[in-house]
Each structure stands twice: as C-alpha cells, then as structure tokens.
Amino acid sequence: MPTARNGAVGIEYAVHGEGPTVVCCGVAGLGAWQWSYLVTPLAREHEVVVFDYRGTGNSDTPDGPYTVRDLTADLDAVLADHGARSVHLLGAGLGGVVAVEYARRAGRPESLGLLGTPTAPSDVDFDALARLRAPRDDPEAIERSLAVAFAPGTVEAHPDEIRRIVEWRATDDADRTGWDGQLAAMREAELTDLYEVTTPSLVFHGVEDAIVDPEAGRRLAEHLPRGEGRAVESGHLVHVEQPQVVADELLAWLDERRA
C-alpha cells in the first residue's frame, strides 16, 4: 500500500474502486478495518481512499500528544501523494472534526459526510470512549469493549461479525502511544464559527450513541450553513453497524449534488 509523507511521519493508505474520490477519516484509536463494511457499496461507483492516522495500523507512531492540526496535515499529505484534486470527505468521530477543519482550511472538499461527530469536547463521554479501548493481545477484553460502540443488543446478535472485528482490532488498532495521542486531539476538538464552513454536508448520528451525544449531530447539521441531518438506529459506529443505510443515503445525496 502507498505511504504519504508528512515531514518525518509516514501515513499509509489504501485505494479501492474507481470514480469520484471519497476519503475516509476514522474514529480515534480504531484502525482502517472500521471502513470495511462501507467500502464495498461505495467503491461500486467511487474511488475510496482509507488511511491510518499516525499511531494506527502501519502508519508511523511519533510521540504524542497529537493535535487536530497534525491530523489534518496528515490528511493533506495523503491527498497530495495520491494526487486527488477534488474529494468528498467522510469522517467519523474525531475524523468528522478533521474533515470539517480541513474543509475550513483547504479548497479540495466538494462535500462532507459526518458520522457521530462532536462539536466540542463537552459532547464526548470520555469515560465511555475509554471503555472502547482494550489491549490488543486480549480478545475477550476487545469483545467486551465493543458494547459501548454499538446499540444495545448488537454485539450479542452478531457473534460471527464481532469475532471478525475482534481479530481486525488486534492487528489494526492504535497502540498505546497512538491512542493517547489521538485522544489528546479529541479533547481539544472544538468546532467553532461553523458559519464559515459552506461545504455541503450530510450529518449522520446514531440515536443510541453512548460516546458522542446524539444532540451534537442535530446541532452540527443545524449550524453548518449547508448541513442536512440523518438520525440512524445505531450506536456510535454508525458506519460499522448500519453501513448499507449510510451508503444508500450518502450515494443518493452525492448524486443530487452532482445533478
């Protein structure tokens, strides 16, 4: 897989499909596996770029703490290395903050898809987010940690998929330095002056999100000048729990933008 360079930091990314470019920015601490269920439907009509934050997967792990500015610079390095001139950004959790801030500072994004995105640290239950973190060498702890990521009953209802996610997390998630660094960025992630972000935006939020207050999604859609909101029957990881719902809504919305 290709590696972009942001100074001394290497950021690994993967490319799937062909067509207009969608770039995925993920939830803090979780690896690129989180996009596995969404890439397939999106890549039928789009080129989908998925990258690992610094401290995650095979990307480099510099000492932290990290900032949102660090992560937006990593995103910029990926786009420059890939040669993408115009993109749709799809961001989940911390990745939604990165996407909004990148749209504020750069001219590349044509539109934004935002999932479970906080507008300020006060929107985040950091105790709940801490429960999502688990030692990568402890499969039982990883499985227990997933309860906070999904709507109640989801883990019990899908044991085969949960086992697959546990295996992915054991190899792909951030190590201790990466988690600490990304959580530091999350703690300072405050979206202010949203009236400046005139990029068309579609905001998804799980109605049973235990990590980011579902009201944050409503406020975000309301305060973005060209924002639209979609409530989804899921927990925090909307793109993992309800990928087809997200894909259907997003693809229809993107088609409307192009029309």
Rank of each mutant, 00 (worst) to 15 (best):
residue 151 A to T: 13
residue 123 D to F: 00
residue 171 T to C: 10
residue 164 R to S: 11
residue 158 H to V: 08
residue 195 Y to W: 04
residue 112 L to G: 05
residue 119 T to G: 15
residue 174 A to H: 07
residue 192 T to V: 15
residue 218 R to H: 06
residue 111 S to I: 05
residue 108 R to M: 03
residue 184 A to C: 09
residue 92 A to T: 12
residue 111 S to L: 11
residue 161 E to K: 14
residue 181 G to V: 05
residue 82 H to K: 14
residue 221 A to K: 09
residue 215 E to C: 01
residue 92 A to E: 11
residue 135 P to H: 04
residue 197 V to A: 04
residue 188 E to N: 13
residue 127 D to W: 05
residue 156 E to Y: 07
residue 84 A to G: 06
residue 217 G to W: 05
residue 162 I to S: 12
residue 193 D to E: 08
residue 133 R to V: 09
residue 208 E to N: 11
residue 178 G to W: 01
residue 96 G to V: 05
residue 84 A to K: 04
residue 97 V to I: 13
residue 188 E to C: 07
residue 137 D to L: 12
residue 96 G to H: 10
residue 119 T to Y: 09
residue 149 A to F: 02
residue 164 R to H: 14
residue 210 A to H: 12
residue 134 A to P: 04
residue 195 Y to G: 01
residue 173 D to Y: 07
residue 114 L to E: 04
residue 184 A to T: 08
residue 147 A to Y: 11
residue 149 A to S: 13
residue 113 G to K: 07
residue 129 L to I: 02
residue 79 L to K: 06
residue 145 S to G: 14
residue 176 R to M: 09
residue 158 H to T: 08
residue 171 T to R: 15
residue 204 F to Y: 06
residue 145 S to P: 02
residue 117 T to K: 03
residue 155 V to H: 02
residue 127 D to R: 12
residue 183 L to D: 02
residue 103 A to H: 08
residue 158 H to Q: 13
residue 167 E to M: 08
residue 124 V to T: 15
residue 201 S to Y: 06
residue 121 P to A: 11
residue 192 T to R: 15
residue 134 A to I: 06
residue 189 A to F: 05
residue 108 R to Q: 09
residue 78 V to H: 05
residue 99 A to F: 03
residue 147 A to E: 15
residue 148 V to P: 14
residue 207 V to E: 07
residue 110 E to M: 12
residue 163 R to H: 14
residue 213 D to T: 04
residue 195 Y to N: 03
residue 205 H to L: 00
residue 162 I to G: 10
residue 211 I to P: 01
residue 79 L to I: 08
residue 207 V to W: 01
residue 141 A to N: 11
residue 140 E to N: 07
residue 113 G to L: 14
residue 99 A to P: 02
residue 147 A to P: 05
residue 110 E to G: 15
residue 80 A to G: 11
residue 110 E to N: 13
residue 114 L to I: 09
residue 214 P to S: 03
residue 161 E to R: 15
residue 139 P to F: 11
